[in-house]
Structure formats: C-alpha cells, structure tokens
Amino acid sequence: MKLLNLTISRVDLPVFDGEVASVTVPGMSGEMTILANHTSIISPLKGGTILIKKENGEDESVSITSGTLEMSDNHATILI
C-alpha cells in the first residue's frame, strides 16, 4: 500500500512529520479524507480534529481551530 507524506506544522513547533496511510481533515464543506496520490489541492480548513491513520493501524488526532491544507507530489502539508 502506498503511503502519504504528511507534515503538520504550527509556527512554534512541528506537530507531525511522517508517512501515513490516510489523513482526515475538517474541510470548509465537510470532512475530507486524503489518501496517497491524491490530486493536487489547496483548501482552507475550519476548526475540528485532524485524524491521522498510520500504517500500523494506530490512530493519532490533532485538534485545530483553523488551517490550510496543501497537497502536491504525494506530500500533504497542513499549516495550523
């Protein structure tokens, strides 16, 4: 299974950096799950929880108040 490179960063500290199976983010018009090789996208995010599914089945969640998602070249960047 192909994995997705995910970077979540906050100004004062990097929150998450690594390969994941999928990530679910609170988009402006509802929840959105991003898998590997998703098409290039830029989207603002609203407050909610980012759910990260790792390769080994573990889950991790990060709560945010706002943010921006950018995805290109199988690399997703979320700025919160």
Partner: peptide, 27 residues
Amino acid sequence: VGTPTDYLVEPSSEEVLNTLIPQLVAI
C-alpha cells in the same frame, strides 16, 4: 519552490485567499 502544478482549489481561489492572506500576514 516546486514546479507550479495545477491545483484543485477547494472551494474557490478567493475563499482560499480569504483565509490564507490573514494567516500569511500574521506569519
């Protein structure tokens, strides 16, 4: 700076800029 790819901008370019610009100015 990566090569400019054509992005799917969700929901609209203006909407994205509306949230991104204040964020950028703050940054």
